[in-house]
Computed example of a mutant assay.
Amino acid sequence: MRPESQMKRIEAFFPLAHGVPRVNDRRVLSGIVYVIRKSLQWKDAPKAYGPAQDFV
């Protein structure tokens, strides 16, 4: 399955933006998977996934 079609299938489960600018859903999801696989804390994740305060 292609990444675009996978994202399309799960985008209905993402929260709606209520006046707050959204961050990139794909980046957030990739960061979540990376942190879980590596058993890290958000602050220890690579900068490519964005600052930790974006995910709190």
Rank of each mutant, 00 (worst) to 15 (best):
D44S: 08
K47I: 06
P21K: 12
V33S: 12
S5G: 00
G50L: 08
L29D: 07
Q53M: 09
G31E: 03
Q6R: 09
I10S: 02
I32Q: 10
F55I: 01
D54Q: 02
P21D: 09
A17K: 13
K8M: 02
D54C: 00
V28T: 15
G31P: 04
P3L: 14
A45V: 07
V28S: 09
P15A: 07
K43H: 05
D25H: 13
P51A: 10
G31S: 06
S5P: 00
N24Y: 00
S30E: 15
R26C: 10
G31M: 03
G50K: 04
R2W: 01
A12T: 06
E11M: 07
D25K: 12
E11K: 08
N24D: 15
P46V: 04
R37S: 09
L16R: 13
L29G: 09
E4T: 11
Y34W: 09
V28M: 08
S5E: 06
G31W: 02
M7G: 02
W42H: 03
D25I: 03
R26A: 15
P15H: 11
A17Q: 12
Y49E: 00
A45R: 03
M1H: 09
K38C: 07
I32V: 15
D44R: 07
E11G: 01
R37E: 11
K43E: 09
I32C: 14
M1Y: 06
K43R: 14
N24V: 01
L40A: 01
K38I: 01
A52R: 14
Q41A: 15
A17P: 10
Y49P: 01
P46K: 05
R22L: 08
E4G: 07
K43V: 10
R26T: 15
V33K: 14
F14V: 11
G31D: 04
V23E: 11
L40D: 00
W42C: 03
W42I: 02
P15R: 14
R37M: 11
M7N: 03
K8Q: 11
P15K: 13
L40K: 04
I32S: 13
S30M: 11
Q53F: 11
F14L: 12
R22N: 03
F13H: 12
D25F: 09
I10M: 08
P21E: 10
V20N: 04
